[in-house]
Nucleic acid binder design. Structure first.
Length: 377
DNA sequence: TCTGGGGTCCTAGGACCC
DNA sequence: TCTGGGGTCCTAGGACCC
Protein backbone atom coordinates (compact mmCIF):
# COMPACT_ATOMS: atom_id res chain seq x y z
CA UNK A 1 0.00 0.00 0.00
CA UNK A 2 1.52 3.33 -0.99
CA UNK A 3 0.98 6.26 1.39
CA UNK A 4 -2.05 8.49 0.86
CA UNK A 5 0.21 11.49 0.11
CA UNK A 6 3.74 11.95 -1.15
CA UNK A 7 5.15 15.23 0.20
CA UNK A 8 8.65 16.43 -0.66
CA UNK A 9 10.75 18.91 1.26
CA UNK A 10 13.45 20.56 -0.83
CA UNK A 11 16.30 22.41 0.85
CA UNK A 12 19.03 24.19 -1.09
CA UNK A 13 22.52 23.19 0.11
CA UNK A 14 24.32 26.00 2.01
CA UNK A 15 22.31 28.33 -0.20
CA UNK A 16 23.87 31.79 0.25
CA UNK A 17 27.39 30.37 0.31
CA UNK A 18 26.75 28.25 -2.78
CA UNK A 19 25.46 31.29 -4.70
CA UNK A 20 28.62 33.18 -3.72
CA UNK A 21 30.78 30.29 -4.95
CA UNK A 22 29.19 30.59 -8.39
CA UNK A 23 30.45 34.18 -8.44
CA UNK A 24 33.83 33.43 -6.85
CA UNK A 25 34.74 29.92 -8.06
CA UNK A 26 38.30 30.36 -6.77
CA UNK A 27 36.86 29.88 -3.25
CA UNK A 28 35.61 26.34 -3.95
CA UNK A 29 36.53 23.96 -1.15
CA UNK A 30 37.68 26.73 1.20
CA UNK A 31 36.05 27.65 4.50
CA UNK A 32 33.79 30.61 3.68
CA UNK A 33 31.25 32.37 5.86
CA UNK A 34 28.59 34.85 4.79
CA UNK A 35 27.55 37.61 7.18
CA UNK A 36 28.25 40.99 8.64
CA UNK A 37 27.98 44.40 7.04
CA UNK A 38 29.17 45.89 3.77
CA UNK A 39 32.74 46.59 4.72
CA UNK A 40 34.38 43.39 3.56
CA UNK A 41 33.74 43.29 -0.18
CA UNK A 42 36.33 41.33 -2.16
CA UNK A 43 38.86 43.62 -3.88
CA UNK A 44 40.00 42.96 -7.45
CA UNK A 45 43.77 43.32 -7.61
CA UNK A 46 45.94 44.54 -10.53
CA UNK A 47 47.03 40.97 -11.36
CA UNK A 48 43.39 39.92 -11.81
CA UNK A 49 43.12 37.89 -8.61
CA UNK A 50 40.76 38.84 -5.82
CA UNK A 51 41.68 39.68 -2.29
CA UNK A 52 39.15 38.51 0.29
CA UNK A 53 38.58 39.54 3.87
CA UNK A 54 39.06 36.82 6.48
CA UNK A 55 37.42 36.40 9.85
CA UNK A 56 40.68 37.33 11.58
CA UNK A 57 40.42 40.89 12.76
CA UNK A 58 36.67 41.19 12.38
CA UNK A 59 35.21 43.69 14.84
CA UNK A 60 31.47 44.19 15.10
CA UNK A 61 28.16 42.64 16.03
CA UNK A 62 27.47 40.54 12.95
CA UNK A 63 26.58 36.86 12.94
CA UNK A 64 27.12 34.09 10.40
CA UNK A 65 24.22 33.76 8.00
CA UNK A 66 25.59 30.73 6.15
CA UNK A 67 28.85 28.78 6.25
CA UNK A 68 30.26 26.44 3.61
CA UNK A 69 30.69 22.80 4.61
CA UNK A 70 34.46 23.34 4.83
CA UNK A 71 33.83 26.15 7.34
CA UNK A 72 31.37 24.03 9.31
CA UNK A 73 34.11 21.43 9.68
CA UNK A 74 36.01 24.08 11.66
CA UNK A 75 33.15 24.32 14.16
CA UNK A 76 31.38 27.46 12.97
CA UNK A 77 27.71 27.57 12.05
CA UNK A 78 24.92 29.98 11.17
CA UNK A 79 23.79 32.22 13.99
CA UNK A 80 27.23 32.25 15.58
CA UNK A 81 28.71 35.69 16.28
CA UNK A 82 31.48 36.59 13.83
CA UNK A 83 33.76 37.57 16.70
CA UNK A 84 33.41 34.11 18.18
CA UNK A 85 33.77 32.44 14.78
CA UNK A 86 37.00 34.39 14.21
CA UNK A 87 38.55 32.61 17.19
CA UNK A 88 37.64 29.18 15.79
CA UNK A 89 38.41 29.82 12.12
CA UNK A 90 40.47 33.01 11.66
CA UNK A 91 41.53 31.89 8.17
CA UNK A 92 37.94 31.53 6.90
CA UNK A 93 36.96 33.91 4.10
CA UNK A 94 34.28 36.44 5.04
CA UNK A 95 31.81 37.66 2.41
CA UNK A 96 28.99 40.20 2.85
CA UNK A 97 25.37 39.12 2.32
CA UNK A 98 23.78 40.02 -1.01
CA UNK A 99 20.05 39.36 -0.66
CA UNK A 100 19.26 40.70 -4.12
CA UNK A 101 21.36 37.95 -5.64
CA UNK A 102 19.95 35.21 -3.38
CA UNK A 103 16.39 36.27 -4.16
CA UNK A 104 17.15 36.05 -7.88
CA UNK A 105 18.48 32.49 -7.50
CA UNK A 106 15.53 31.66 -5.24
CA UNK A 107 13.07 32.64 -7.98
CA UNK A 108 15.06 30.60 -10.47
CA UNK A 109 15.13 27.37 -8.45
CA UNK A 110 11.44 27.63 -7.57
CA UNK A 111 10.53 28.12 -11.24
CA UNK A 112 12.63 25.06 -12.12
CA UNK A 113 10.73 22.98 -9.55
CA UNK A 114 7.37 24.30 -10.76
CA UNK A 115 8.13 23.04 -14.28
CA UNK A 116 8.08 19.51 -12.88
CA UNK A 117 5.71 19.83 -9.91
CA UNK A 118 3.44 22.89 -9.63
CA UNK A 119 1.95 22.38 -6.15
CA UNK A 120 4.48 24.24 -4.00
CA UNK A 121 4.47 25.76 -0.51
CA UNK A 122 7.00 28.53 -0.08
CA UNK A 123 8.99 28.26 3.14
CA UNK A 124 11.38 31.13 2.64
CA UNK A 125 14.27 31.89 0.36
CA UNK A 126 15.92 28.47 0.24
CA UNK A 127 13.30 25.81 0.94
CA UNK A 128 9.89 24.61 -0.21
CA UNK A 129 7.43 21.78 0.23
CA UNK A 130 6.12 20.07 -2.91
CA UNK A 131 3.08 17.81 -3.26
CA UNK A 132 4.02 14.92 -5.54
CA UNK A 133 0.88 12.85 -4.93
CA UNK A 134 -0.95 13.66 -8.14
CA UNK A 135 2.04 13.62 -10.45
CA UNK A 136 2.17 11.00 -13.17
CA UNK A 137 4.57 8.31 -12.05
CA UNK A 138 4.48 9.14 -8.34
CA UNK A 139 2.13 6.26 -7.50
CA UNK A 140 3.98 3.93 -9.83
CA UNK A 141 5.86 1.93 -7.23
CA UNK A 142 5.26 -1.52 -8.69
CA UNK A 143 7.85 -1.29 -11.43
CA UNK A 144 10.64 -0.62 -8.96
CA UNK A 145 11.33 -1.40 -5.36
CA UNK A 146 11.69 1.34 -2.73
CA UNK A 147 9.03 3.58 -4.25
CA UNK A 148 10.85 4.02 -7.53
CA UNK A 149 8.08 6.17 -8.97
CA UNK A 150 8.36 9.11 -6.55
CA UNK A 151 12.09 8.69 -6.37
CA UNK A 152 12.34 9.24 -10.12
CA UNK A 153 10.09 12.31 -9.91
CA UNK A 154 12.17 13.79 -7.10
CA UNK A 155 15.37 13.08 -9.02
CA UNK A 156 13.91 14.90 -12.02
CA UNK A 157 13.21 17.92 -9.79
CA UNK A 158 16.80 17.85 -8.54
CA UNK A 159 18.15 17.65 -12.08
CA UNK A 160 16.02 20.59 -13.17
CA UNK A 161 17.17 22.75 -10.23
CA UNK A 162 20.78 21.90 -11.02
CA UNK A 163 20.32 22.68 -14.70
CA UNK A 164 18.62 26.02 -14.02
CA UNK A 165 20.92 27.31 -11.26
CA UNK A 166 24.11 25.26 -11.13
CA UNK A 167 23.24 24.58 -7.48
CA UNK A 168 22.57 21.36 -5.60
CA UNK A 169 19.72 20.67 -3.23
CA UNK A 170 18.57 17.92 -0.91
CA UNK A 171 15.10 16.39 -0.99
CA UNK A 172 13.16 14.25 1.44
CA UNK A 173 10.01 12.48 0.19
CA UNK A 174 7.60 11.07 2.79
CA UNK A 175 3.86 10.93 3.58
CA UNK A 176 3.81 14.39 5.26
CA UNK A 177 5.61 17.70 5.80
CA UNK A 178 7.04 16.88 9.22
CA UNK A 179 8.78 13.70 8.05
CA UNK A 180 9.81 15.27 4.74
CA UNK A 181 11.59 18.06 6.58
CA UNK A 182 13.49 15.49 8.67
CA UNK A 183 14.22 13.30 5.65
CA UNK A 184 15.71 16.09 3.53
CA UNK A 185 18.48 16.44 6.10
CA UNK A 186 19.39 12.76 6.26
CA UNK A 187 21.59 12.72 3.16
CA UNK A 188 22.66 16.36 2.90
CA UNK A 189 24.22 17.81 0.77
CA UNK A 190 23.01 16.73 -2.67
CA UNK A 191 20.87 13.94 -1.26
CA UNK A 192 17.57 12.23 -1.96
CA UNK A 193 15.79 10.27 0.77
CA UNK A 194 12.43 8.50 0.43
CA UNK A 195 10.81 7.29 3.66
CA UNK A 196 7.49 5.81 4.78
CA UNK A 197 6.18 5.12 8.27
CA UNK A 198 7.89 1.71 8.09
CA UNK A 199 11.23 3.52 8.30
CA UNK A 200 10.38 5.37 11.52
CA UNK A 201 12.21 3.04 13.95
CA UNK A 202 15.43 2.85 11.94
CA UNK A 203 15.71 6.32 10.38
CA UNK A 204 13.72 8.77 12.53
CA UNK A 205 13.71 7.53 16.11
CA UNK A 206 17.51 7.59 16.51
CA UNK A 207 17.55 11.34 15.74
CA UNK A 208 18.05 13.92 18.51
CA UNK A 209 14.84 15.71 19.55
CA UNK A 210 16.11 19.09 18.38
CA UNK A 211 16.01 17.91 14.74
CA UNK A 212 12.23 18.08 14.84
CA UNK A 213 10.73 21.24 13.39
CA UNK A 214 8.93 22.69 16.41
CA UNK A 215 11.30 21.60 19.18
CA UNK A 216 13.55 24.58 19.79
CA UNK A 217 16.08 25.47 22.51
CA UNK A 218 13.50 25.79 25.31
CA UNK A 219 11.45 22.66 24.67
CA UNK A 220 14.64 20.75 23.88
CA UNK A 221 16.12 21.66 27.26
CA UNK A 222 12.95 20.76 29.13
CA UNK A 223 12.74 17.39 27.38
CA UNK A 224 16.41 16.76 28.12
CA UNK A 225 15.84 17.57 31.79
CA UNK A 226 13.14 14.89 31.77
CA UNK A 227 15.67 12.40 30.42
CA UNK A 228 14.53 12.39 26.79
CA UNK A 229 17.21 12.63 24.13
CA UNK A 230 15.93 11.11 20.89
CA UNK A 231 12.66 11.04 19.00
CA UNK A 232 12.48 7.37 19.96
CA UNK A 233 12.57 8.37 23.63
CA UNK A 234 9.65 10.67 22.91
CA UNK A 235 7.72 7.95 21.11
CA UNK A 236 7.94 5.75 24.21
CA UNK A 237 6.06 8.24 26.41
CA UNK A 238 2.30 8.02 26.62
CA UNK A 239 0.10 10.89 25.68
CA UNK A 240 -1.15 11.68 29.18
CA UNK A 241 2.42 12.03 30.44
CA UNK A 242 3.32 14.47 27.67
CA UNK A 243 0.14 16.51 28.20
CA UNK A 244 0.87 16.64 31.92
CA UNK A 245 4.34 18.10 31.32
CA UNK A 246 3.78 20.22 28.21
CA UNK A 247 0.10 21.16 28.22
CA UNK A 248 -2.77 19.92 26.14
CA UNK A 249 -1.82 21.46 22.85
CA UNK A 250 1.95 21.04 22.74
CA UNK A 251 1.82 17.67 24.56
CA UNK A 252 -0.50 16.20 21.96
CA UNK A 253 1.57 17.63 19.16
CA UNK A 254 4.74 16.03 20.60
CA UNK A 255 2.94 12.70 20.89
CA UNK A 256 1.81 12.75 17.25
CA UNK A 257 5.09 14.13 15.93
CA UNK A 258 7.16 11.32 17.46
CA UNK A 259 4.92 8.85 15.58
CA UNK A 260 5.30 10.68 12.29
CA UNK A 261 1.68 11.85 12.35
CA UNK A 262 1.13 15.16 10.58
CA UNK A 263 -1.94 15.99 8.51
CA UNK A 264 -1.13 19.63 7.73
CA UNK A 265 -1.96 20.51 4.14
CA UNK A 266 0.38 22.48 1.90
CA UNK A 267 -0.33 26.21 1.95
CA UNK A 268 0.19 27.34 -1.61
CA UNK A 269 -0.98 30.93 -1.29
CA UNK A 270 -1.48 33.61 1.34
CA UNK A 271 -1.07 37.24 2.29
CA UNK A 272 1.71 38.38 4.61
CA UNK A 273 0.78 38.98 8.26
CA UNK A 274 3.31 41.69 9.00
CA UNK A 275 6.25 43.63 7.57
CA UNK A 276 9.06 45.03 9.66
CA UNK A 277 12.48 46.66 9.59
CA UNK A 278 14.95 46.62 12.45
CA UNK A 279 18.58 47.44 13.02
CA UNK A 280 21.21 46.69 15.63
CA UNK A 281 23.45 49.69 16.27
CA UNK A 282 27.21 49.50 16.01
CA UNK A 283 27.34 50.79 19.58
CA UNK A 284 24.61 51.03 22.21
CA UNK A 285 22.70 54.31 22.10
CA UNK A 286 21.03 56.29 24.87
CA UNK A 287 17.62 57.89 24.38
CA UNK A 288 18.77 61.24 25.72
CA UNK A 289 22.48 61.42 24.96
CA UNK A 290 22.12 60.00 21.42
CA UNK A 291 18.75 61.47 20.71
CA UNK A 292 19.55 62.95 17.31
CA UNK A 293 20.99 59.72 15.93
CA UNK A 294 18.14 57.61 17.31
CA UNK A 295 15.57 59.95 15.82
CA UNK A 296 17.25 59.75 12.43
CA UNK A 297 17.32 55.91 12.54
CA UNK A 298 13.73 55.71 13.80
CA UNK A 299 12.43 57.87 10.98
CA UNK A 300 14.42 55.89 8.43
CA UNK A 301 12.99 52.56 9.68
CA UNK A 302 9.44 53.96 9.43
CA UNK A 303 10.21 55.13 5.90
CA UNK A 304 11.53 51.68 4.93
CA UNK A 305 8.42 49.94 6.30
CA UNK A 306 6.24 52.37 4.34
CA UNK A 307 8.23 51.71 1.17
CA UNK A 308 7.98 47.94 1.64
CA UNK A 309 4.21 48.17 2.16
CA UNK A 310 3.71 50.35 -0.91
CA UNK A 311 5.95 48.24 -3.13
CA UNK A 312 4.02 45.08 -2.25
CA UNK A 313 0.62 46.79 -2.23
CA UNK A 314 -0.37 46.58 1.44
CA UNK A 315 -1.32 48.92 4.27
CA UNK A 316 -1.11 48.17 7.99
CA UNK A 317 -3.61 49.07 10.67
CA UNK A 318 -1.40 48.07 13.62
CA UNK A 319 1.94 49.87 13.93
CA UNK A 320 4.48 48.61 16.43
CA UNK A 321 8.01 49.11 17.66
CA UNK A 322 10.64 46.76 19.04
CA UNK A 323 13.45 47.75 21.35
CA UNK A 324 16.33 45.71 22.64
CA UNK A 325 18.29 47.06 25.57
CA UNK A 326 21.98 46.64 26.33
CA UNK A 327 21.09 43.71 28.63
CA UNK A 328 19.41 42.05 25.60
CA UNK A 329 15.95 42.39 27.16
CA UNK A 330 13.44 42.99 24.37
CA UNK A 331 10.16 44.87 24.57
CA UNK A 332 7.45 45.62 22.03
CA UNK A 333 4.67 48.19 21.94
CA UNK A 334 1.95 48.52 19.35
CA UNK A 335 -0.95 50.71 18.46
CA UNK A 336 -3.95 49.96 16.28
CA UNK A 337 -5.12 52.86 14.14
CA UNK A 338 -8.68 53.60 12.96
CA UNK A 339 -7.55 53.18 9.34
CA UNK A 340 -4.77 51.16 7.68
CA UNK A 341 -1.84 53.21 6.41
CA UNK A 342 1.21 52.84 4.20
CA UNK A 343 2.31 56.43 4.73
CA UNK A 344 5.80 57.03 6.15
CA UNK A 345 4.79 60.03 8.25
CA UNK A 346 1.71 58.30 9.69
CA UNK A 347 3.77 55.20 10.56
CA UNK A 348 6.47 57.38 12.09
CA UNK A 349 3.91 59.21 14.21
CA UNK A 350 2.21 56.03 15.48
CA UNK A 351 5.60 54.50 16.23
CA UNK A 352 6.51 57.65 18.14
CA UNK A 353 3.42 57.24 20.33
CA UNK A 354 4.46 53.66 21.03
CA UNK A 355 7.94 54.80 22.02
CA UNK A 356 6.50 57.14 24.65
CA UNK A 357 5.17 54.12 26.54
CA UNK A 358 8.64 52.64 27.11
CA UNK A 359 11.01 53.34 29.99
CA UNK A 360 14.22 54.47 28.27
CA UNK A 361 16.69 54.48 31.15
CA UNK A 362 18.91 51.75 29.74
CA UNK A 363 20.93 52.07 26.56
CA UNK A 364 19.47 50.55 23.41
CA UNK A 365 21.15 48.12 21.03
CA UNK A 366 18.27 47.57 18.59
CA UNK A 367 15.32 49.49 17.26
CA UNK A 368 12.60 48.16 14.96
CA UNK A 369 9.36 49.31 13.34
CA UNK A 370 6.60 46.96 12.28
CA UNK A 371 3.26 47.07 10.45
CA UNK A 372 0.65 44.35 11.04
CA UNK A 373 -3.06 43.71 10.47
CA UNK A 374 -2.25 44.14 6.80
CA UNK A 375 -4.85 44.75 4.14
CA UNK A 376 -4.32 44.62 0.41
CA UNK A 377 -4.51 48.00 -1.29
C1' DT B 1 33.62 37.58 22.41
C1' DC B 2 28.03 37.73 23.71
C1' DT B 3 23.98 36.94 20.63
C1' DG B 4 21.32 39.75 12.79
C1' DG B 5 17.06 40.52 10.49
C1' DG B 6 12.73 39.00 8.80
C1' DG B 7 8.97 36.40 9.79
C1' DT B 8 4.76 33.11 11.98
C1' DC B 9 1.99 31.34 15.56
C1' DC B 10 0.45 30.82 20.36
C1' DT B 11 -0.93 32.32 24.99
C1' DA B 12 -2.98 35.18 28.25
C1' DG B 13 -5.22 39.10 30.38
C1' DG B 14 -8.23 43.02 30.06
C1' DA B 15 -11.74 45.76 27.62
C1' DC B 16 -16.00 45.73 25.80
C1' DC B 17 -20.29 43.92 24.09
C1' DC B 18 -24.42 40.99 24.06
C1' DT C 1 -24.49 42.30 48.17
C1' DC C 2 -23.08 39.21 44.77
C1' DT C 3 -22.87 37.95 40.61
C1' DG C 4 -23.31 34.15 34.06
C1' DG C 5 -20.97 33.09 30.05
C1' DG C 6 -19.62 33.82 25.34
C1' DG C 7 -17.28 36.27 21.66
C1' DT C 8 -14.01 39.51 19.70
C1' DC C 9 -10.48 42.93 19.74
C1' DC C 10 -6.25 44.75 21.50
C1' DT C 11 -1.77 44.39 23.61
C1' DA C 12 2.65 42.14 25.26
C1' DG C 13 5.63 38.56 25.44
C1' DG C 14 7.72 34.39 23.99
C1' DA C 15 8.89 30.20 21.25
C1' DC C 16 10.31 28.93 17.04
C1' DC C 17 11.83 29.06 12.11
C1' DC C 18 14.78 30.47 7.94
Amino acid sequence: MPPRRWIAHLDMDAFYASVELLRYPDLAGLPVVIGGGRRHQPVLQPDGTRRYATLAGYAGRGVITTATYAARDLGVHSGMGLMKAALLAPQAVLLPVDFEQYRAYSRRFKAAVAEVAPVIEDRGIDEIYIDLTELPGAQDSLAHDRHGGVRAVAQEIRNNVRRATGLTCSIGVTPNKLLAKLASELDKPDGLTVLTHDDLPTRIWPLPLRKLNGIGPKAGARLAALGLRTLGDLAQRDRAWLVEHFGRSYGRWLYDAARGVDERPLVTHGDPVSMSRETTFERDLHAVRDRAELTRIFTELARQVATDLQRKGYAGRTIGIKLRFDDFKTVTRDLTLPQPTADAAAIRQAAGLCLKRVDLQRKLRLLGVRAASLVRL
